[in-house]
């Protein structure tokens, strides 16, 4: 008991220190970006100081067009991710639980997976034009593989003892998937979700920037074309915040879904998983 108490207080003490340092780091970073253009390390015309960017960001927040763009980006991201996650999970569970199917598709998957989604850009432009649909194709294509690979790994990695137990209790195929395969594959599924969510955001912005489908990326491109430098940076900051929020969201989901899982429990006990 005594040792545990000593350890807990040490852990909180350490966390307090690291949080303080972290905040200091962020402030320092903002300060560097504020000062560097002002003293001429970088050209102030093309790299405005933090304060100016923040002011411009504030102005943007007051404009309906900004919110529309943000909403569109979020919708594209969410729709693409949803399609990729569902498709990746279904196909992944199938491939993972049927070895013959897995063997037959292995080479195909290995060839299709590394094809960069940006290779499809010209294709979707001629097929669908500068629409959300074009961007969705890129997002789904890129996020699907992240999900698929993790789910297949997860299903293949199911403890053989658990599988045998399921068989001895005559769970049947559906019961086996529901009570044995799915729960033990869940950590992998969550990893896939995390990777897919990040990739989906990257491709959403890429599509908007390059194809010109409506959203934040397109606004950034427009601002750059018309040399509205501060708006470019303000919107870039928004995408960064979006990235952070998505990370945090997915981690929350992960922690809630995997609360029962030994790996998660061990992590929180050790104070490692808290981030």
């Amino acid at each position: 008991m005594v040792a545990v108490a000593a350890r807990t207080s040490r852990v909180t003490g350490r966390r307090f220190r690291s949080v303080t340092l972290g905040v200091l780091g962020l402030l320092g970073f903002a300060l560097v970006l504020e000062v560097a253009p002002r003293v001429g390390i970088v050209p102030i015309d093309f790299a405005p100081p933090t304060s100016q960017i923040l002011v411009t960001l504030g102005e943007q927040l007051g404009q309906p067009s900004f919110w529309t763009a943000l909403l569109r980006t979020l919708l594209t991201w969410a729709n693409g991710l949803l399609i990729a996650v569902v498709a990746g999970t279904v196909v992944g569970v199938l491939l993972g639980s049927l070895p013959v199917l897995r063997a037959a598709t292995a080479t195909t998957v290995e060839f299709l997976r590394p094809i960069p989604s940006v290779a499809l850009i010209p294709l979707v432009i001629v097929l669908y034009g500068p629409t959300v649909r074009s961007t969705l194709v890129l997002v789904v294509y890129a996020a699907f593989w992240q999900m698929l690979i993790q789910v297949v790994h997860g299903v293949v990695d199911v403890d053989p003892v658990a599988r045998d137990t399921a068989r001895s209790f005559r769970l049947g195929p559906w019961g086996t998937v529901r009570y044995v395969i799915w729960p033990s594959a869940l950590p992998y599924v969550m990893t896939g979700l995390r990777l897919a969510a990040a990739v989906a955001l990257i491709l959403t912005i890429t599509g908007e920037l390059v194809i010109g489908s409506p959203g934040l990326g397109k606004e950034i491109d427009n601002a750059q074309q018309s040399n509205a430098v501060r708006i470019v940076y303000a919107l870039i900051v928004v995408t960064g915040i979006l990235g952070v929020l998505i990370n945090v969201l997915i981690r929350q989901v992960e922690r809630r879904v995997l609360a029962w899982h030994p790996a998660t429990r061990a992590e929180t006990v050790e104070g490692v998983g808290v981030r």
Binding site: G25, G28, L209, V232, Y233, G240, G243, N247
Partner: peptide, 23 residues
């Protein structure tokens, strides 16, 4: 401890937005 939040923030940017800034 000092740099981790900054790095996590920088990592969260979708890299393609760097292109307009870099141009």
């Amino acid at each position: 401890a000092l740099l981790e939040p900054v790095l996590e923030f920088l990592r969260a940017f979708p890299p393609p937005v760097l292109v307009p800034a870099a141009i």
